[in-house]
Structures are given as structure tokens and as C-alpha cells.
């Protein structure tokens, strides 16, 4: 494998970071090197949302995002949400509503919910479902997730 290493610099959860990555490495590979495991690979095809991270504020599938493309960008992961020691509103709502079982999909749902509520403080059920339709939960905690998103929206209003 003719690997080519590239040096990249980026902001990671608010702090400057740099790494040397090979051209085929994806964002999940990169985050693992910083001991961040919240974005995790499951389907590897952009179908499940387990690998979600925010790049310059836009939610992306980490499994389909080449690491070298985040050069110069700002990355936020689920681990950044409680940086100050307090859980974010969305995270707390997920706990209160029991919106997960195994928790493997949870970081992706939490980030996508933050993404939704940033733009829409009062989403309808249909808007919530549509926004989260790219995330899969095999434990099928969907009814609880819907409640959690609504609870978080209420608290943020």
C-alpha cells in the first residue's frame, strides 16, 4: 500500500490539534488517535450515523469523511458537549427520557439533535423524525428519543 502521509491542523472541541494522516484515513480513525471514541464506525457506509461529528458546524458521517479534508477546520464531537463538566441540555434530556439502551448510536443521535435544535427550537414530530432519519438505533429507542428531543427543545426555549 503506497501510503502517503499528510500533516493537518484543525481545531478539536475548541483546542488546536495536529496530526499526520494517511490519505485513506477517515475521520473516525483520526478521532480515535485523540482517545475520542464517541464517533464510532458501525455500517461504514454513511447509513447509520454512529460516526457523526460536526465539521465547521455541519454534521458529517465520520466514516465517509477523509481525515485530510478536515485540515484547517473545526471539529466537534460528543465529548465536547460536557467540556465544562456539566451535561448539555440534549444529553440530560436523553438520560431523563431513557432514550437509549446499548448507547452505541447515542452520540450520533445527540449530535444530530443539537444540530436540529440549533436551527429549530420548536420542531414538530415530523421534523424531528426527518432530521434523525439518517441515524439508526437497533435497540429501537425511537419513541424515547422523540420524547427526549421534545423535552430538550422545551428546556431550550
Amino acid at each position: 500500500m503506497a501510503a502517503r502521509e499528510v500533516a493537518i491542523g484543525f481545531t478539536l472541541n475548541g483546542r488546536p490539534a495536529s496530526a499526520r494522516v494517511e490519505t485513506h484515513h477517515n475521520l473516525v480513525d483520526l478521532l480515535r488517535r485523540f482517545d475520542l471514541f464517541g464517533a464510532r464506525e458501525s455500517c461504514g457506509q454513511g447509513m447509520c450515523g454512529c460516526c457523526t461529528a460536526l465539521v465547521d458546524g455541519v454534521a458529517v458521517s465520520g466514516c465517509l469523511t477523509l481525515a485530510l479534508l478536515v485540515d484547517g477546520k473545526s471539529i466537534e464531537t460528543v465529548e465536547g458537549l460536557d467540556a465544562g463538566g456539566n451535561l448539555g441540555v440534549v444529553q440530560q434530556a436523553f438520560i431523563d427520557e431513557g432514550a437509549f439502551q446499548c448507547g452505541f448510536c447515542t452520540p450520533g443521535f445527540v449530535l444530530m439533535t443539537c444540530d436540529l435544535l440549533k436551527r429549530n427550537r420548536d420542531p414538530s414530530d415530523a421534523e424531528i423524525r426527518d432530521h434523525l432519519a439518517g441515524n439508526l438505533c437497533r435497540c429501537a429507542a425511537y419513541p424515547e428519543i422523540l420524547r427526549a428531543v421534545k423535552a430538550a427543545a422545551r428546556r431550550m426555549r
Binding site: L36, F37, V78, I95, F100, G103, T106
Partner: peptide
Amino acid sequence: EARKKVSGRA
């Protein structure tokens, strides 16, 4: 383990 799961640290 709720807190760990919502913060990606489980």
C-alpha cells in the same frame, strides 16, 4: 452508566 453513554465515554 447513562452519563457515560450520552457523552460517548462508555
